[in-house]
């Protein structure tokens, strides 16, 4: 038990980060599942983090309502920019959302209330392990249900062929907006959770690199199922810690691992079909 206490006090933040990154990877998985390559999730995470932190610091709202507000605020932003932005497709959508993210970051940088580049410090510790576990579980359950629902099938249809989906009478624009703003909600909650266990937030954490990191987590894990993004985010979060003993060579190896995984498993680590085939073979072997 003492071993566990030591372990937990050393690595709890790491475990929290894994959970938050899993939420972020799922948020981008959602938009990808609708065929949208949106890179706005880091910015949405930032909006959630700042709104929640400010509510905690200035108005002393309860943590539950703070989390909710952290999710709702970026959702509203997503609804506003969604209509014009979602007309774009492919890399152009990706670039427009990246540009939007930069605009958000620079705005936060120049506002008085957000503390500018110095960020917000002294955010009280409110996030606990079970908060993250519960929210992650609810999100996974919700997304799994969504996949099998009418909405999920519409997403799938839009992803496969937008024109055909439109011809079939699917309200493409509305479904895209739904995926975009739901993704924003999840990212916002993740941001709010993160802000309340790291004591401090600053604009730098929600920029270009972070947007690309989130995408990398989802794609590395594989986007064909919900397990992929969670696996990818866990690996990318834990890898630098596992490589700590390599000291100066750490980021070199980190980069190399990324390249090699992508090279040998281009569809992501967790590809349902391949995994199923693997287990079938395993069973066949035993029988």
């Amino acid at each position: 038990m003492e071993w566990f206490n030591d372990f937990w006090s050393t690595y709890s933040t790491l475990v929290f980060s894994v959970g938050v990154h899993a939420l972020l990877a799922l948020s981008i998985w959602l938009t990808l599942s609708c065929g949208l390559l949106s890179l706005a999730n880091a910015a949405f995470m930032g909006v959630g983090a700042y709104v929640s932190a400010l509510l905690t610091l200035h108005l002393e709202w309860s943590f539950g309502s703070v989390l909710l507000a952290g999710g709702i605020a970026p959702t509203l932003v997503a609804l506003i920019i969604g209509a014009p932005v979602l007309r774009l497709s492919g890399v152009y959508l990706a670039m427009a959302t990246l540009a939007f993210g930069e605009v958000v970051r620079i705005t936060v940088l120049n506002l008085e209330i957000t503390g500018g580049p110095e960020g917000l410090n002294g955010i009280p510790l409110a996030t606990e392990g079970w908060h993250i576990a519960l929210i992650l579980a609810v999100t996974v359950y919700g997304l799994a249900r969504l996949r099998r629902s009418k909405v999920g099938r519409a997403f799938e249809a839009i992803k496969e062929d937008e024109v055909a989906a439109r011809l079939m009478g699917i309200n493409v624009d509305r479904y895209k907006l739904l995926a975009f703003s739901l993704g924003a909600f999840i990212a916002g909650v993740a941001g709010a959770l993160n802000a309340h266990f790291t004591f401090f937030i600053s604009p730098r954490e929600y920029g270009f690199e972070n947007a690309v990191d989130i995408l990398t987590m989802a794609v590395l894990g594989g986007t064909s199922s919900l397990i992929g993004p969670m696996l990818g985010s866990s690996i990318l979060t834990l890898l630098p810690e596992l490589l700590r003993s390599l000291q100066d060579f750490r980021s070199l190896v980190n980069g190399a691992v990324l390249v090699l995984v992508v090279l040998f498993l281009p569809k992501g680590l967790w590809e349902s079909r391949r995994i199923r085939a693997f287990f079938k073979r395993l069973k066949g072997g035993q029988a």
């Binding site: 030591d6 006090s9 050393t10 980060s17 110095e118 960020g119 401090f200």
Partner: peptide
């Protein structure tokens, strides 16, 4: 996040007497 992880490792696992760092004010917060 790395700042927090490293501090926790040093304090709880390596059981150091004290910690110097981190480098940036942001990480210190």
């Amino acid at each position: 996040e790395e700042g927090i992880n490293v501090f926790k490792k040093l304090i709880f696992q390596d059981k150091v007497l004290m910690v110097f760092g981190p480098t940036l004010s942001n990480s210190m917060f």
